[in-house]
Simulated scan of single mutants.
Amino acid sequence: MSQSPTQALAPGEIVLKKVRAVASWKFDGQDVCAICRNQLVEPCVECLASPAAADECKIAWGTCMHPYHFHCIRKWLKTRECCPIDNTTWEYQSVGILH
């Protein structure tokens, strides 16, 4: 129930005037590729089969901020055009080497 500024508060009553939500995110190396289930700091399944390529296994970030191994999301996108986690249309934000 809303009270006007001139009304007195009952003993122990609190009025919330402002809320400021704060959040943070930190990559701690424990994130996994939702497609192959390997950790993102480790090579994808495709690169594990070819150790010469494993040194350059890249991470692809979508505009939805979900990361995957580049080879995994590339293969996924051949049959679907959406992010595996939230089903939004996939668009690359960046691709880079994480490890």
Rank of each mutant, 00 (worst) to 15 (best):
A23G: 10
F70H: 12
L77P: 06
E91S: 06
D28K: 08
E81Y: 02
K75L: 13
D31W: 05
C83R: 01
N87T: 13
C44Y: 04
A49R: 15
Y68N: 12
L98F: 11
A52C: 08
V41K: 15
E42R: 12
E81S: 15
A49W: 02
G29H: 10
C47E: 07
E81C: 04
F70Q: 03
E56F: 11
E81K: 15
K78N: 10
V95M: 10
E91N: 08
P51A: 03
T88M: 09
F27M: 11
N87D: 12
W25C: 04
S50I: 09
V45A: 14
S50A: 12
Q93I: 00
P67T: 04
L48M: 15
G29D: 11
V32K: 13
P51T: 03
C57P: 12
D28P: 00
W25R: 08
R80N: 11
V22Q: 11
P51C: 04
C64D: 11
S24Y: 09
A60M: 08
C72F: 09
P51M: 01
N38Q: 14
L98Q: 06
K26V: 15
A60I: 01
L77I: 07
S24P: 00
T89P: 01
A60L: 03
V32H: 11
W61A: 15
L48D: 05
I35Y: 06
D28L: 09
L77W: 07
E56M: 07
D31C: 13
P67A: 12
K58A: 15
G96I: 02
A34I: 01
A34F: 09
S24V: 03
E46C: 06
A54M: 05
C64L: 03
N38Y: 09
D55Y: 06
A54G: 06
